[in-house]
Computed example of a mutant assay.
Amino acid sequence: MIKLQCLVLCCFTIGAFASKVPFINKCAWADKACLTKSSQDALLHFTNGIPELGLEPMEPLTLKAVTLKKDKLHIDFSDMVWVGPSKCVFKHVERNAPEKWLDIHLVCPVDLTGHYVASGHIPPIAIEGDGTFHCKTEEAEFIIRVGLVPYDKDGDSYWKLSCSDIKYSFDFKKKTLLEFLNLFGGDEEKAAPVKKLLDQNTKNLVNDIAPPIIRAVVDKICTNVNNFASQIPTKYLEIL
């Protein structure tokens, strides 16, 4: 009778976890093609959000506040909204089991809006403004390496991402729009040199301005994924 009860409980537990993540196609960690496809198949579920599993919606992805301080340039960004995470395409996902890291290569459209307050210089041009900013491109490439930290809880194995140790690079591969509205309080004559610089040197300026925003995006996604991973034992996520 006890054995039967244990069997029923075990089957119930397995069914409960499996029903929570039917969108996860389990892969052997060495199977790069499976990992890449499984990541793509699960993307919409992650971006739509699964509150009962700790996943906040990420389409659109929102950020509260980020500050850029570089040389003589200071920009406070706030109330940001990125439309496009659900349209990302995973190009490559790979896990190194002995060294416990995960590599992710993906491309995403970026349509980011928010509020900015700027002061200082984008050498050699002065900039000052308080208003709306907009950054848009059809294809931004992101290459990410993050550590995987295994741990045990209640007799099961879990993993979490080492969010503080993430390494990443980015490249806006296609033509990019970068605009700041209400420069110099709407003084078009003073704003003209800045607008010209933004139009003619967009890629370099994005490389200078984007890092703290991208860091905030990466941190938010990493925290969200860890909230999910803390709910589901690894045996329901991988082929051992």
Score class of each variant (00 low, 15 high):
residue 5 Q to Y: 12
residue 7 L to R: 10
residue 9 L to V: 10
residue 15 G to A: 05
residue 17 F to S: 02
residue 23 F to Q: 03
residue 23 F to W: 11
residue 24 I to W: 02
residue 35 L to Q: 02
residue 39 S to Y: 10
residue 43 L to I: 08
residue 50 I to Y: 02
residue 52 E to D: 15
residue 52 E to I: 12
residue 53 L to T: 14
residue 55 L to E: 10
residue 60 P to E: 13
residue 66 V to E: 04
residue 66 V to L: 10
residue 67 T to I: 10
residue 68 L to Q: 03
residue 68 L to S: 04
residue 70 K to P: 00
residue 72 K to D: 15
residue 73 L to G: 07
residue 84 G to K: 08
residue 84 G to I: 11
residue 86 S to T: 08
residue 89 V to S: 06
residue 90 F to N: 05
residue 92 H to I: 01
residue 101 W to P: 01
residue 108 C to E: 06
residue 108 C to Y: 00
residue 111 D to I: 12
residue 112 L to G: 00
residue 119 S to N: 14
residue 125 I to V: 15
residue 126 A to T: 15
residue 132 T to M: 11
residue 138 E to P: 03
residue 143 I to T: 09
residue 148 L to T: 09
residue 155 G to M: 07
residue 159 W to E: 09
residue 162 S to D: 12
residue 167 K to Y: 09
residue 167 K to D: 15
residue 170 F to K: 08
residue 172 F to H: 01
residue 173 K to W: 00
residue 178 L to F: 11
residue 184 F to V: 12
residue 190 K to T: 14
residue 192 A to C: 06
residue 202 T to G: 02
residue 207 N to R: 15
residue 209 I to Y: 05
residue 213 I to F: 07
residue 215 R to I: 00
residue 216 A to N: 06
residue 218 V to H: 11
residue 224 N to L: 03
residue 226 N to A: 05
residue 226 N to W: 01
